[in-house]
Simulated assay, not measured.
Amino acid sequence: MTKPDPAPRPPAAPADLEIKDAQLIFPAVWADLLEKHGADVQFPSEFIWLGGAPGAGKGTNTPFIARARDITAPPVVISALLTTPQAVAIKNAGQLVGDREVVALLLEELLHPQYRDGVIVDGFPRTKVQVECLKLFYHALLARGGPPPMFRIALLFVTEEVSVERQLKRGREVLEHNRQVRASGAGERLEERVTDLDPGLCRKRYQGFKDTTFDALQSLRQIFHFHFIEADGDLGEVQRNIVREFAYQSSLELSPEVFQSIQHLPLATELARHARQELVRRLEQYARENPDAFRRVIGWIETKLLPIVHAHAMSGHAQINSEEALLDDPTALRMMIDVLSERGFHVTVDLHRVDVPERVDPQTWAIICQTKKVFRIEIRYPPSDIRRGH
């Protein structure tokens, strides 16, 4: 009796296929790399994987992102890697530059010493297979020991309307540039992309980004730190969004042990954020709870400090030594600083004690000194706009 044929297996889901493809691609590329360069290969300490729709402004904003993260190396642009001699050789051999070839070219490029302190990679990952390869790359770096690599995903996002508008604008600018080159005979012509001249093709490019790259990058939200940067606005607005997204976050950059030991200390940005409200609260409290002292401090500022401040208006910097007894009271000293701060002055105060000879002990001939308190007050403020002639 023959056994019935087993039930056919359901086809593998697309995600499973992509994971399997990556599990075949990355180990082979990694093994080739180690065989060629040795096990002690050195990769960057920080990676920013930058993605964005057509017209999102990646090329425009990459230098700004680099400055925000103190990255001095040029970006690695995947589209440029595909024109390298290695990529051209692959094409000339009649082969496609697929995910395996892209990953191999990228890892080879990242070994250059100029990227050691940090790198921005423009245009990777773009596919779900590349996303899986990125995860495997991260785990391969972790397995080497030492500080964990810093991976950041940055996505410059624009709506379809903005993307299409910017692509068409770029196409018009290229056409006009080339027209002037032909008319004058000076300069070099730029590539005229068909996709920058046809609204339908512009929309198709955007939709391709949404269906592949966008979804691929979104899948990394739960694994790596993800910077979603709104890029619809003008350049200044976009760069403000970048600064806000890339603000220093110690929990991401320090080891858990170090972060745990210092996290109870306030961040400077948190202090500054609430400083104005706390200043107002203190001034109202002075007027309510210590009205006499508050009036004396204001009177002293008006009669003693402001005349000197006015005299230094050209420089915006006044230094004042005072033995005013009123300032012996710490609350009065705080009042003085707060009142001037509310009016826009930057004030610092140092207390110096000076021993002044007062008398001589006739029996021991010891000099008896009186200790005086001298408050050294430094006040800075915007100087006069009047310029001196040269």
Rank of each mutant, 00 (worst) to 15 (best):
T2Y: 14
T2L: 06
R9K: 15
P10R: 09
A13N: 01
A15I: 14
K20V: 15
A22G: 04
W30S: 02
A31W: 08
L33V: 08
L34R: 12
E35A: 11
E35K: 08
K36S: 14
A39R: 10
A39S: 03
Q42W: 07
F43T: 03
S45T: 15
E46P: 02
F47D: 02
I48F: 02
W49M: 10
G59F: 08
T60S: 14
T62V: 07
A66T: 00
A66L: 05
V77P: 11
S79V: 05
T84G: 08
V102K: 13
V103K: 07
E108T: 00
H112D: 12
Y115R: 04
R116I: 10
G118M: 10
I120R: 01
D122M: 10
R126P: 12
K128R: 15
V131T: 13
C133T: 04
L134P: 00
H139D: 10
A140S: 10
L141A: 00
G145H: 14
G146M: 11
F151W: 06
I153C: 11
A154Y: 06
V158S: 09
T159S: 11
T159I: 09
V164Q: 00
L168W: 12
K169H: 09
A183S: 05
G187N: 10
R189T: 11
V194R: 14
C202A: 15
Y206E: 07
F209T: 03
D215L: 14
D215T: 13
D215F: 05
L220K: 05
E230A: 03
G233Q: 03
D234S: 05
G236L: 13
E245S: 15
A247E: 12
S250K: 15
F259P: 01
H264L: 07
A268D: 05
E270N: 14
A275P: 06
Q277P: 05
R282N: 10
A287G: 14
E289K: 09
N290E: 15
A293T: 10
F294N: 11
G299P: 08
L305G: 04
I308H: 08
H312I: 00
A313K: 11
M314K: 11
S315D: 13
H317V: 09
S322C: 01
E323V: 09
E323I: 13
L327S: 15
D328F: 09
D329Q: 09
A332K: 15
V347F: 00
V347L: 01
T348Y: 06
H352W: 08
R353I: 12
V354K: 01
V354N: 07
V356I: 12
D361N: 12
P362I: 06
T364C: 07
T364W: 14
I367T: 06
I368W: 00
T371F: 02
K372I: 06
R376Y: 13
I379S: 01
I386L: 09
R387I: 14
